[in-house]
Design a protein around this nucleic acid. Structure first.
Length: 777
DNA sequence: CATTGATCGATTTTT
DNA sequence: TCGATCAATG
């Protein structure tokens, strides 16, 4: 297809088939625009057509457009669909927050004190780094679990709380103070090792832009139009970045749906979208409420559920489509009956020759087990979505770590990962001696290993250490010589590291060894592909500067092996290839979270029970139930033709049998939309009397749950006697008690007019009624 | 230093 | 129930 052809075709079809609101979203000239795009309302279509319109009809150079998404998958889809309309958009910045910000950061990272050969610290490395820091601080025996450090540090970064600020806020709380000092040391550790973790990529870019007027102006000037997808999922840092970058031209289009905000646990702040009109009083607000996906029945049910939420932009999806089949609710005896019901239904539909697609959705992945075994029993192919990603596999990361260390010999985290992989007789003792020696001399661990003969504490390990250094040095030499292809280099790494030999040895005894070996070999064939793309300018040409034509840009590419490896490592850190999917299975299994943005003819929502969905954790947080309800809304609106919801009277989960009543969310679905099998979707008196629900669901429990429900959904928002407004509190917040001193809120349980707070003090945990206890902020 | 049994603990996930 | 992670043994 020629460029001209695309151009004309794009122009013609740009507005045809769009409804008036969609047209408005495409054509609105500029300024701040908020597009509230309901589920299945043609969101991606609108964004891509808007981009095409800007380029084709308003002559905006493609390099002056910045389009931001949350996943690479979404970015690729957007790019492809935009290219189908416009032709070449190679020089347009379309990508995830992290990819885009890394481009900015790479160019000027020295201004925030990092060298250009920085590495990216992924979640694995992050844990390793924190462990290192704990050892360095003599805290290796702390009772605080590692993931507590990881999550607290990450949310502090997401909320832009510096270590100093964190420390000051919690100085009376020993528990949080420990975390604060580890946070501070961790930040130093990353800086010392010249590494950015995922949060840092955004945080340091923001700092770079804030502190350097010339750089800020450069990008503010460049980006004439900025579009942000899934705006309801942005966190504080992302919010600030978008605000800063769009400040000059103010052509900011944000697209999202507050009803589908389901990522608070990773820092998403729904108020970013709810308050957009306050931030930009002159914003054009466009509501896309016509749904092109689901039947009337499904939509009405979903609308009824989400209408219960208070913190939302009022919006009501409608459709021209058919009434459709009623929703099926099945109350199963137990988890195996539930699974069999779902799988039989799928089998019947498959046997009737239907070409439909199927998805089984669930709140927590532990629920897949029964479904999986039933599917196997019936011989139906399935695929679990969002499982382990290619680049996250151990064997792949090991190979990557060798490359990282060869490239950047100061990368201690990579060294720690592989110095004894495969086994070389280097254990904790050696590692500790090495770590100490490196720290004492102020050099990297690899550098210390190289001097093992000269450093007294290392002499007894010298032979083994020098052997390892030799392996890395050989790789580094290849890397610098540049007469080796990238694929050949990877092959060398796989061979010389001993990783291949190790796996070949294991093949006899370990069935998975073969797969792992194949995965490593796949890396080498991947490398060939990558090198080709890189040299063709498909990887970095888009980094080209303002207005540079693609050909010149391609010629500017650094074609040394070192540069290619660097680009590859970057991609493997930021890219979790979801397009690697093999042939289409009959059924897709996934969590509700990973189903967002997808659609299926038939959707089965399993485990629709209290204590599973909503998750018991949600009760602890103010407005936690609202997020669960949004999750339910997302699940329901994935279905195009038919929705089936199931629950079980008894369920074996985590080794215990639970007796859970059907989810409270089901009660809000109008009865006339539902065909009930095996029991009612509401909790009836008869059901309560049933022995099977047992003690887990007796009157006490029931009363409490009703009270909680009322409290959570209709919170009284006035301060108590002590002046505390419980709805304004959040878990993790610091609070004072006259007798116990400074504490941290661990949980908030709504109880009608007020809430019960669980607070951790230096002296232990205590519970208080939020509006009458001797508390202050 | 490597292997093995005990213990803990358990949402949701992308980059 | 199952898996990962951690202290005691060969």
């Amino acid at each position: 297809m020629s460029f001209e052809h695309n151009y004309e075709a794009g122009r013609e079809s740009l507005l045809t088939g769009l409804n008036p609101e969609q047209k408005k979203a495409v054509l609105t000239e500029g300024g701040p625009i908020l597009i509230l795009a309901g589920a299945g309302s043609g969101k991606t279509r609108v964004i891509t057509h808007r981009i095409a319109h800007l380029i084709l009809d308003r002559n905006v150079p493609s390099w002056r457009i910045l389009a931001i998404t949350f996943t690479n998958k979404a970015a690729n889809e957007m790019r492809e669909r935009a290219e189908a309309l416009v032709g070449e958009v190679g020089s347009m910045w379309i990508g995830t927050f992290h990819t885009m910000m890394l481009r900015i950061l790479r160019r000027d990272c020295e201004r925030v004190g990092f060298r250009p050969d920085f590495s990216i610290i992924d979640t694995d490395d992050q844990r390793r780094a924190i462990k290192e820091v704990l050892v360095g601080m003599g805290l290796e025996n702390t009772t605080i679990p590692l993931k507590e450090f990881v999550s607290k540090i990450s949310s502090a970064k997401n909320e832009m709380i510096s270590p100093d600020k964190f420390k000051a806020e919690v100085k009376h709380n020993p528990y949080l103070s420990t975390i604060a000092s580890v946070y501070a040391e961790y930040v130093k550790y990353c800086r010392r090792h010249n590494g950015f973790d995922f949060d840092d990529i955004l945080l340091y870019t923001l700092q770079l832009l804030q502190e350097n007027e010339d750089i800020r102006e450069r990008y503010q000037e460049r980006f004439l139009h900025i579009l942000v997808d899934e705006y309801q999922d942005t966190n504080k840092v992302q919010y600030e970045l978008v605000k800063l970058l769009s400040a000059k031209h103010r052509n900011l289009t944000v697209v999202g749906d507050d009803d589908q905000s389901i990522y608070r646990f990773r820092g998403a702040d729904i108020t970013n979208i709810l308050d957009f009109e306050d931030d930009y009083p002159d914003a054009t607000v466009i509501r896309l409420e016509q749904n092109y996906r689901s039947t009337k029945t499904i939509l009405n049910a979903a609308n009824a559920v989400i209408a219960e939420n208070e913190a939302r932009k009022k919006k009501r999806l409608w459709t021209d489509g058919e009434e459709g089949a009623p929703i099926t609710f099945y109350l199963a005896e137990d988890h195996s009956h539930e699974a069999r019901f779902v799988v039989r239904d799928i089998r019947n539909k498959l046997h009737s020759g239907s070409k439909a697609d199927f998805a089984v959705l669930y709140r927590a992945s532990a629920l897949t087990r029964n479904i999986e075994s039933s599917l196997r029993e019936y011989g139906i192919s399935y695929q679990i979505f969002g499982g382990l990603r290619f680049y996250d596999r151990k064997e792949i990361k090991d190979v990557t770590a060798y490359m990282r260390l060869a490239l950047n010999q100061a990368d201690d985290l990579a060294l720690i990962r592989i110095i004894n992989t495969p086994k070389r007789g280097i254990g904790d003792q050696t590692l500790e001696a090495l770590r100490d020696a490196a720290a004492a001399q102020g050099i990297s661990m690899l550098a210390a290993a190289r001097q093992a003969h000269e450093i007294e504490s290392l002499q007894r390990y010298a032979a083994k250490l020098m052997y390892f250094v030799g392996i890395i040095d050989k790789m580094t030499a290849t890397l610098m010589s540049s007469d080796t292809s990238f694929a050949a280099f990877i092959e060398e790494v796989i061979r010389d590291s001993g990783l291949a030999a190790e796996l070949e040895k294991q093949i006899q005894t370990d069935l998975s060894a073969r797969t792992r070996l194949e995965n490593m070999q796949e890396m080498a064939s991947d490398a060939l592909e990558f090198e080709k793309k890189y040299l063709a300018g498909e990887i970095v040409a888009a980094w080209a500067d303002e207005g540079m034509d693609p050909e010149t840009a391609a010629n500017e590419i650094d074609d040394s092996l070192e540069a290619i490896v660097r680009a590859y490592l970057e991609q493997s850190a930021l890219y979790s290839d979801q397009d690697r999917q093999s042939q289409k299975p009959d059924v897709n299994l996934m969590t509700i979270h990973s189903a967002k943005g997808l659609e299926f003819d038939h959707v089965y929502l399993i485990g629709a029970e209290e204590r599973i969905f909503p998750s018991p954790f949600a009760e602890e947080e103010a407005f936690g139930i609202e997020e669960e309800r949004r999750l339910c809304y997302v699940a329901m609106t994935r279905a195009k033709k038919q929705l089936t919801i199931t629950a079980a009277r008894s369920r074996l989960l985590y080794g215990r049998t639970q007796y859970n009543p059907p989810s409270r969310f089901l009660a809000t679905i109008p009865d006339d939309l539902v065909n009930e099998i095996g029991g009612k979707k509401e909790v009836t008196p008869a059901m309560r009397a049933e022995r099977s629900f047992g003690v887990m669901f007796d009157t006490m429990e029931k009363l409490e749950s009703i009270r909680r429900k009322k409290a959570a959904e209709k919170p009284v928002r006035k301060p108590g006697d002590n002046g505390i407004l419980w709805t304004a509190l959040s878990v993790g917040q610091a609070i004072q008690h006259t007798r116990f001193g400074q504490g941290e809120i661990l949980a908030i349980t709504p109880t009608g007019d007020s809430a019960i707070l669980r607070v951790r003090f230096a002296s232990g945990e205590k519970r208080f009624v939020s509006d009458s206890a001797d508390l202050s902020l």
